[in-house]
C-alpha cells in the first residue's frame, strides 16, 4: 500500500468513525443531568413554573434536570449566563420578557438573537385593574375619566422598565391619556397598594389580582390579549373595548445559539411532553398560568417584531436610550 492510498484510507476510516461517533452521541443525548437556569430568584413565578416543568420533563429525558437560580441585574445575570453556557444542550434557560427590555436600556451586551428558542411556554396578558368601588366600570369610562383628570390617576407596576410598566405605557399611548406611573418592588406590593387604595390602578397579570377580584375588593376593566382569558371569561379584551392593545409577559425555553439541531429536537420533544403531562396541566390550571405553547422557530419570528415594538414604547416612556 503506497502512502497516498494509506492516507486516503485513514481519512475515510477516521471520518466514518467521527460520523458514527457523532451519530452515537446525538442518539444518546442526554448522557448526564441537565441544568436549567432560572434568571429569577427561588420561589418566584418563573422559578415555580420552571421547577414544575423540569420535574415533569425528567421522565421523558431519562435524566435529571437541576434548576439553578442565577439571579441579579434585573434578569441580566441569568440571561447572560444562559448564553455563555456550552452550546451542547446540557444547559437550558427559561428566558423571560426582560430579554426584550434590557437591551434597549443599553445595559446588556446581548439580545434574544443570541439564543436558539425551543418553545414558548406561557403568555399572560396585562389586565387593567382598579378598586371595586372606583367611579368607572368599563375601559371607556376609565379613559374618559383619565381625560377629564389628566395626570391624576396613579398606575402601579412592578418596577422601572418592567413588563407591567411597559404594558401601562402602551395602554396610555393608544388611549391618548396622561397617567402617572408608580413603580413598586414587584407586582404583589403594587396589588396590595391598590387594595389599600394608595393608588388608582395597576396593570399586572390577571393571575396576580385573581384572589382580590374574586373576593370583590378589585375589578378588572379589560385584558390586553387577543382573546378573553380563561380565568375571567366575563372580562372583555381591550380590542373588544375599542383599543387595539395586545401586550403581556411570556416565558420560553432556549439554548445558546449554535446548539446542534438534533439536540434541540430531543429537548423540544421532551419539554413539550412535560408541558402536556397531566400534572403540569393541573399545575397551570391551579396557578392561573396561561399556557401558550409555540414552537421555537415561530416564536423567534414573533420576537423580531415584538422587540422593535418594545424598543419604541420604551423610548416614548423615556426608558430607552
Amino acid at each position: 500500500m503506497n502512502k497516498r492510498v494509506f492516507l486516503l484510507f485513514a481519512v475515510a476510516v477516521l471520518s466514518v468513525g467521527t460520523l458514527l461517533a457523532n451519530g452515537q452521541q446525538e442518539a444518546s443525548f442526554p448522557q448526564k443531568d441537565l441544568t436549567a437556569i432560572c434568571p429569577w430568584s427561588a420561589g418566584g413565578g418563573t422559578d415555580t413554573i420552571l421547577r414544575a416543568l423540569a420535574k415533569e420533563t425528567e421522565p421523558f429525558l431519562g435524566q435529571g434536570i437541576t434548576v439553578t437560580n442565577k439571579t441579579g441585574g434585573g434578569g441580566a445575570v441569568g440571561h447572560g449566563a444562559g448564553i455563555s453556557a456550552d452550546a451542547d444542550g446540557y444547559t437550558v434557560t427559561m428566558v423571560t420578557f426582560e430579554i426584550l427590555s434590557l437591551p434597549p436600556q443599553g445595559l446588556v451586551p446581548f439580545t434574544y438573537a443570541d439564543y436558539d428558542f425551543l418553545m414558548r411556554v406561557n403568555m399572560d396578558p396585562a389586565a387593567l385593574t382598579v378598586p371595586a368601588d372606583a367611579p368607572y366600570n368599563t375601559v371607556e369610562e376609565f379613559v374618559d375619566y383619565a381625560k377629564a383628570h389628566p395626570g391624576e390617576i396613579n398606575v402601579g407596576h412592578s418596577g422601572p422598565g418592567s413588563v407591567w410598566q411597559i404594558a401601562g405605557g402602551v395602554l396610555a399611548q393608544k388611549a391618548g391619556i396622561e397617567v402617572k406611573f408608580v413603580p413598586y418592588d414587584g407586582a404583589a406590593p403594587a396589588v396590595s397598594a391598590l387594595v389599600g387604595q394608595h393608588i388608582e390602578a395597576v396593570t399586572v397579570s390577571p393571575a396576580e389580582v385573581q384572589g382580590q377580584v374574586e373576593a370583590g375588593t378589585l375589578k378588572i376593566l379589560g385584558v390586553m390579549s387577543s382573546e378573553r382569558v380563561e380565568i375571567f371569561p366575563d372580562v372583555p379584551t381591550m380590542q373588544e373595548e375599542g383599543l387595539d392593545v395586545v401586550f403581556g409577559t411570556w416565558r420560553a425555553l432556549a439554548v445558546p445559539k449554535g446548539t446542534p439541531e438534533s439536540v434541540q429536537n430531543t429537548l423540544s420533544v421532551a419539554f413539550k411532553a412535560g408541558m402536556n403531562s397531566t400534572n403540569f396541566r393541573e399545575f397551570a390550571k391551579n396557578t392561573g398560568l396561561g399556557l401558550a405553547y409555540m414552537p421555537g422557530q415561530d416564536f423567534e419570528a414573533e420576537l423580531s417584531t415584538a422587540s422593535t415594538d418594545v424598543n419604541q414604547v420604551m423610548k416614548n416612556l423615556g426608558l430607552a436610550k
Partner: peptide
Amino acid sequence: LGAFVIQGLQPGPL
C-alpha cells in the same frame, strides 16, 4: 402563597 395556589386554594377573604 404559591404553595396554596398550586393546590388550587386562593388565600384571601374567599
